[in-house]
């Protein structure tokens, strides 16, 4: 059964991004921009050294449909591999006995639109510009988007954004034009280490669980999946992740909920308040004219 409601729906397609093999090369970012002809900053003032490790694009947005996060962390010296060849924990730096004997780890992760099962952006879009494709992905039709901007604060992951000087909203299309032709999305194609894996979501979920178990067996107990759970607040995502730390460390919400899940309650509340207004108006006219 597909969420998409297409009679001839394809299997749901998505991404499993395994950040434990991401080398932060940013090929995905560039490939996405090349393929989708995302506008490029044409003068240096549009570019900033952000000082966020090697991340200089900062976040996902109208002009970054993939974004690679870089997180430098100090880890306790006890995590430094000394002589236990077989117990391979996380990569560490092994400085000799210094005053400050700490190891380092450097997490890299390529983020993207989650293509939520319950997509807030799509729910709140008043024009129908956002729609669900036959691959169960969430895509904006730029010719219909009226730039109302409602999808922007609706997305619990801060993905979709209005493009300055254009006004319309843009985000990852899961390369709708490529996957329709049986091609892999541009970012996945460019990823050298297969950190970005494209495929049928059901199959990817299985692969993700196996990968997590393998890492756990290797002592990388901090490996965890994010977005793979169909019972989470967005009904699971079409693009999910294997992370090596808490989601918020990567700039991801720890427990996102699709805002429209609460919409009926909100309407009830607003209805009650409206009745309250009506009652108050009526009551204020009751009896006296003075």
């Amino acid at each position: 059964m597909s969420e998409s409601g297409y009679a001839d729906a394809q299997p749901r397609m998505g991404f499993f991004t395994d950040t434990s093999v991401c080398i932060g090369c940013k090929a995905c970012e560039v490939a996405c921009k090349e393929w989708n002809a995302v506008p490029a900053p044409d003068d240096p003032s549009g570019m900033d050294l952000l000082g966020l490790s090697y991340d200089n694009t900062g976040d996902l947005g109208a002009n970054n449909w993939r974004h690679v996060a870089f997180i430098e962390q100090q880890v306790p010296a006890s995590r430094v591999n000394k002589s236990d060849v077989d117990n391979l924990g996380m990569p560490t730096i092994g400085a000799p006995e210094q005053e400050d004997d700490t190891g380092v780890r450097w997490l890299m992760s390529s983020d993207v639109c989650k293509h939520c099962t319950h997509a807030a952006c799509l729910d709140v879009c008043p024009t129908g510009a956002l729609f669900r494709t036959e691959f169960d992905t969430v895509v904006v039709q730029p010719d219909i988007c009226n730039g109302c901007g409602y999808c922007v604060p609706a997305c619990p992951y801060g993905v979709i954004e209005k493009r300055e000087d254009d006004g319309r909203a843009f985000k990852c299309t899961l390369c709708y034009d490529r996957i329709g032709d049986g091609l892999e999305p541009a970012c996945a194609k460019a990823c050298p280490t297969d950190s970005i894996q494209y495929g049928e979501v059901s199959e990817l979920r299985q692969r993700a669980v196996e990968r997590k178990q393998a890492l756990h067996a290797d002592g990388v107990t901090e490996a965890r999946l994010y977005g793979d759970d169909p019972d989470d607040g967005v009904g699971g995502t079409g693009a999910f992740f294997l992370l090596l730390d808490e989601p918020e460390v990567y700039g991801l919400p720890p427990d996102p909920v699709v805002t429209t899940r609460d919409l009926p309650a909100m309407w009830r509340r607003a209805g009650a308040a409206a009745l309250g207004v009506a009652a108050a108006v009526v009551a204020s006219f009751a009896g006296a004219r003075r």
Binding site: N81, P91, I93, A95, R105, W106
Partner: peptide
């Protein structure tokens, strides 16, 4: 230096 390579290695020798 601890580089992108070190990040994916089991051990970095600085």
């Amino acid at each position: 230096r601890f580089t992108r390579t070190s990040a994916l290695a089991h051990e970095h020798v600085g």
